[in-house]
């Protein structure tokens, strides 16, 4: 199978969907000729024109709100939010307006919009360009939240998100834009709410979100070298969450660690851990473990920043201790 980058996968997904459906348009800062700072959207404007690939002023609440209204009235907008950290700027439009319109109207108004943004530290971008804020939006009923872990997921999830009749927020790990993965030439969709069993294993389950799947894979290779077997579950979307696949795996292995790049406290790892504790407690042979980003603003200095995120070394060590009864 051909391999393409995550960036190309996103570009392809948008182009394919826009060819299929005229009501789709995309708006955000520097999305047209510039194709975003990460060049993810390069050349889309050449095919679809500035009428459908719309450069906006630097006004995140404004263009997010415009997308909500467009979505209510027959369009299917895709919002490009240049950095996930800018979510704080659009919270009213996303959480008070988009998320609630369908419910508050008793099902009359739909908001079929996608908000694409990113996450991920270690790009030496400091505290306002490095956050992983998916837990914030996952907390709000009415928003779906997708967390692609490779180019394949990025394409399949984005296409499903564009076709969904609800607001969907997609977090792409900005450090993965140039990572390649096998992606079929022919069309495919990945349903929202279906986890992927990335690796089969027997001694521990690693629930890994977004780029943490790569971290988990590296850790699992090292565990294998020591004769230990770990299963990796990639939830792919955290709302809806495929609880069944996670619980099934935990009941098989009896041990679990959740790995997520959001801040650990009050985060997605806490939610998944709580559900496991409630629903699979009697199947556990070890405490439910989790590893998130440190509860600090992401520092600039590389030596400090590298301490804040989960690493394969730390995942390996904690998983090994759990399996060998040292915790």
């Amino acid at each position: 199978m051909r391999e393409i980058t995550l960036s190309q996968a996103v570009n392809e997904a948008i182009a394919e969907e826009m060819r299929r459906d005229d009501t789709i348009f995309l708006l955000g800062e520097d999305v047209a000729e510039a194709g975003t700072p990460f060049k993810i959207l390069s050349r889309l404007v050449e095919e679809f024109g500035t009428d459908r690939i719309i450069d906006t002023p630097i006004a995140e609440p404004g263009f997010a709100g415009i997308a909500v209204g467009a979505a209510m009235t027959g369009s299917r907008p895709i919002v490009d939010l240049m950095f996930g950290d800018f979510l704080f700027l659009v919270m009213d439009q996303l959480c008070n307006q988009a998320a609630k319109a369908h419910y508050m109207s008793g099902g009359k108004l739909n908001v079929p919009m996608v908000l694409r943004t990113n996450m991920g530290a270690t790009r030496r971008s400091a505290a306002q360009h490095s956050q992983s804020l998916h837990a914030l939006v996952a907390h709000i009923p009415g928003l779906k939240v997708a967390m692609p872990s490779s180019a394949y997921e990025a394409k399949g999830l984005l296409k499903s998100a564009i076709r969904d009749n609800n607001p969907v927020v997609i977090f792409e790990d900005k450090l993965m834009y140039q990572d390649k993965a096998p992606v079929p030439e022919e069309e495919f969709l990945i349903p929202l709410g279906e986890a992927n069993v990335k690796r089969d294993g027997t001694d521990i389950t690693l629930v890994a979100i977004s780029s943490m799947v790569q971290v988990a894979e590296e850790a699992v290779d090292r565990l294998s070298a020591e004769g230990l077997s770990a299963e990796i579950i990639d939830p792919r979307t955290i709302v809806p969450l495929d609880e069944e696949t996670i619980l099934k795996s935990v009941m098989k292995t009896g041990r679990v660690m959740i790995i997520d790049e959001g801040h650990q406290s009050f985060g997605v790892s806490a939610e998944i851990a709580a559900r496991i504790a409630e629903k699979a407690f009697y199947h556990l042979d070890a405490p439910v473990l989790r590893m998130g980003a440190m509860d600090v603003p992401i520092p600039f200095s590389p030596v400090l920043e590298d301490l804040t995120v989960p690493t394969a070394d730390r995942v390996f060590e904690l998983a090994r201790q759990a399996i060998q009864g040292e915790i």
Binding site: R52, G65, I66, A67, V68, M72, D92
Partner: peptide, 17 residues
């Protein structure tokens, strides 16, 4: 002021469609 974006978006939708 919460609906100012929505109104403007409805207008963009009408124009585009």
């Amino acid at each position: 002021g919460g609906s100012m974006g929505i109104a403007t978006g409805a207008a963009l939708s009408a124009k585009r469609l």
